[in-house]
């Protein structure tokens, strides 16, 4: 008798679980690598205009989102990728995971901030770029000037005071290294990195961590990206963010539609919204470079002309040479034992 009941309950439970995983109409699953503190602001805007669509968010760092997307390749879960590094989306595209889609407002988007195919596989929303986050208290204590250029960073005075992301583990690390190689040419670039390595206290596995460590005084200078430094300053940390004179490496945070058997119309609605003027204005509050001018003034602390700050980044070159660069970088600087 009891066993019978148990079986029925178990089956009912199993069916409910089955049903619950098949997402209901009006619900989309979005993978994103946007910063945690930004997401609620943007989503509130979406909710106002689309109260009928339930957006489920999986947020992780770029690396994990990309790894998850690729690992799920054979049976994609996400409907939409939102605000994730364009270089990551290129990897997904190589794996054949992206469905070309031309969202509304595409015409307004700068050509550098979208996939060149028509319709594009990915469309950018904003750019983030290399910035130096310097702890003002520590800098003062150590008598360090605030670094203004790549050239500054290799000055002997900064020896053991700089933290930088490991390009083999972090997207920010890679775009910085790739920018240096593109700016200086490979030969000079590597020579520069050799010298930089002399000054590096250590490499981290995450791109935001150097900024954070600088904020906590663990290092004087963190090579990171602009947004992070500004947010930390808002929280009361004694940091200042500067951008290298020579130009910043940068990447686009972009959206894409995932190729699936059943592509939900709501996914396209979301992608249309994600580059609409209303949300672009919100992006523009903290990011100087958006897919198209947001109408906001440049946030404080950024260069007057942020577009000029960004180097002419050759994404194709970077994607093609990524493995080779990382191998060389690892050979030169990684895998050494503790600095004693």
């Amino acid at each position: 008798m009891n066993r019978c009941k148990f079986l029925i309950v178990a089956m009912a439970a199993a069916i409910m679980l089955l049903v619950s995983t098949a997402a209901f109409a009006g619900e989309i699953l979005v993978y994103t690598a946007l910063e945690d503190d930004e997401i609620p602001i943007y989503l509130d805007i979406f909710k106002k205009s689309h109260p009928d669509i339930d957006v489920k968010i999986v947020r992780d760092s770029t690396g994990i989102v990309t790894a998850k997307l690729l690992a799920e390749k054979d049976n994609p879960q996400a409907d939409v990728v939102w605000g994730t590094a364009a270089t990551s989306l290129m990897l997904c595209d190589q794996a054949g995971m992206l469905e070309p889609y031309a969202p509304k407002y595409l015409a307004k988007v700068r050509p550098t901030m979208r996939d060149s195919n028509t319709p594009p596989r990915w469309v950018g929303i904003k750019a983030w770029m290399t910035g130096f986050v310097t702890n003002t208290i520590e800098a003062k204590r150590l008598g360090l000037p605030i670094p203004q250029s790549y050239a500054d960073l290799i000055k002997p005075i900064y020896k053991g005071q700089i933290i930088m992301p490991n390009p083999a583990s972090s997207g920010t690390g890679f775009l910085t290294v790739s920018a240096i190689l593109q700016l200086m040419g490979e030969e000079k670039g590597w020579a520069y990195l050799d010298k930089l390595h002399e000054n590096i206290l250590r490499y981290t596995h995450s791109g935001s961590k150097p900024a954070k460590l600088a904020g906590a005084g663990e290092a004087a200078v963190g090579v990171s990206f602009g947004y992070r430094g500004f947010m930390q300053k808002q929280k009361g940390e004694p940091v200042v963010t500067t951008f290298p004179k020579e130009g910043s490496g940068w990447d686009v945070e972009a959206n894409a539609l995932i190729k699936k058997d059943h592509i939900k119309p709501d996914a396209k609605v979301f992608l249309d919204w994600a580059i609409s003027p209303e949300v672009m204005a919100a992006y523009g509050k903290v990011y100087p470079v958006t897919a198209y001018p947001s109408g906001n003034p440049i946030p404080e602390g950024y260069p007057k002309d942020p577009q000029a700050q960004m180097i002419k980044n050759d994404f194709q070159w970077a994607a093609k040479n990524r493995m080779r660069i990382l191998k060389e970088w690892t050979r030169r600087y990684d895998g050494k034992s503790d600095p004693k």
């Binding site: 994990i64 990309t66 790894a67 690729l70 990551s88 083999a168 583990s169 250590r202 490499y203």
Partner: peptide
């Protein structure tokens, strides 16, 4: 090790680097 390992590479963080950093499954 991910938090306090610094530049000291060990196998577990290598997995992280390969999979998360480079998507090299």
């Amino acid at each position: 090790p991910q938090v306090v390992g610094g530049n000291y590479n060990i196998l577990a963080t290598d997995i992280y680097k390969q999979v998360i950093g480079q998507q090299n499954f």
